[in-house]
Amino acid sequence: MPSGHIVTFTRADLVRAVNAFLETYGTAEGDFRTDLEHAEPLHFWEAAFVRQTLADASRLTGQWHDEISKTYYRYENTHSTDRFGNPECWIANDTDWNDDYSWAVQFALAAYQVTGDRHLREQAKWHTDFFYRGYYDDAYGGGFWRERGTKDQKDVPSNGFAIAAAELARYYPTETVHNDPLGTGRTYLEIAKDTYDWLKDSFLRADGRFENSFSGREWDGNLYTYNAGVFLELAANLYDLTKDRSYLADGVRVADFARTHFTTGSGQLVVYEDDVDGKGRYRPDPVDSYEIVFKGILLRGLSRFITLGGQTQYLDWLGTNAQASYDHRTGDLPSAVFDQAVGNARGTGAACGLAAMTYALMSTAAEPSPR
């Protein structure tokens, strides 16, 4: 790695850590328990982060193909019904937020890359089409709605569908999807670019902070690592598809702000979120708060920004966070909070440590050249 930082853990250590995670948090059915003291499964959006992390670790190491297929079909078999013309439509619950499904879509695409099971890619495509067709419009200037039933908020997380659209553009470069509210058809690349432009215009500030939502709710201006990660991953994909360097310039602003604002210590370990209008910077509870997963989303976006965008100046930062999580492990389970060991952790917190390790090794193996 540049800057003299080299992680000491290896792929073999990652394999051991993932196996420990599956043994500790995985269930026989293919779900993931909430924490070490509570066996009830994580909500499917959190589980989707775990599943995508597992898929990425598999892509790096060549292992766990059967586990990935099993956990995908566990999700589909327990969260789908015959609706909207799709016998395996995932939208069985009309109260789920739209961003929940964007994570399921992104996991399905990652799992397809590992398993080659075309059903997963087709399901990712169908659900992306469904949400774009009916729940993207020009209210507030563009973007996906957060909820289908109550259209009162547009936020950054729900626009993770643009990441899926960028991925689908590689498989279906000329196909268009008709948007009913706008009365127009757009290619997947155009969907991703339109959404990116709206996100940038709406939420990106001059110093690189990336705000959260439109609606009048008190946390509109909050700063989350989650949102920075979504934007970085989308920017990385769009640069890779278009070679337009403006995506890199925008991403650098966001990454640089995140590196100073959400971190602690000389290693700049990612530990904070920011409730701007309330308590200010805070550390999510590693057991009781689903927000513990947000930093994992940031690191995934950062990894894509490094590998697809060639932004090697962030390798050292990514590696330092991964190393800290590994150094503060409990047994073979990496730390959920990175800068200290925790005896119990939410499943997605432990998975953040796995993600950090996976992406540090993956980014180093890719050996991207600065662009």
Rank of each mutant, 00 (worst) to 15 (best):
R83E: 00
S80Q: 03
R33Q: 14
D129A: 12
S80L: 04
F84G: 03
P87A: 08
Y135K: 01
E273Y: 00
S369A: 13
N227L: 04
Q63M: 12
G319C: 09
T115Q: 13
T320G: 04
Q311W: 00
E46K: 14
T34M: 05
F107W: 13
T81S: 08
S335I: 11
D138M: 11
A255D: 07
P87C: 10
R51K: 14
I6N: 04
L238T: 08
L333E: 06
T176G: 03
F107I: 00
R51V: 10
A169D: 13
T174Y: 09
Y172S: 10
Y140A: 13
H79Y: 12
A350C: 11
Y196W: 12
Q153R: 13
N93K: 10
G309F: 03
R259M: 09
R283D: 01
F9H: 03
A47V: 11
Y359R: 05
T195G: 03
Q153W: 14
L269Q: 02
F107A: 08
T225A: 12
A124L: 10
Q153K: 14
E88Y: 04
D316W: 00
E23P: 01
Y112M: 07
D240W: 05
E46H: 14
E40K: 15
W317D: 00
S363C: 11
H43M: 09
G280Q: 06
I163K: 04
G343E: 13
Y314E: 00
A336H: 05
A355M: 15
L269C: 01
A206D: 12
L14N: 05
S303C: 11
P181T: 05
T128M: 10
L308W: 01
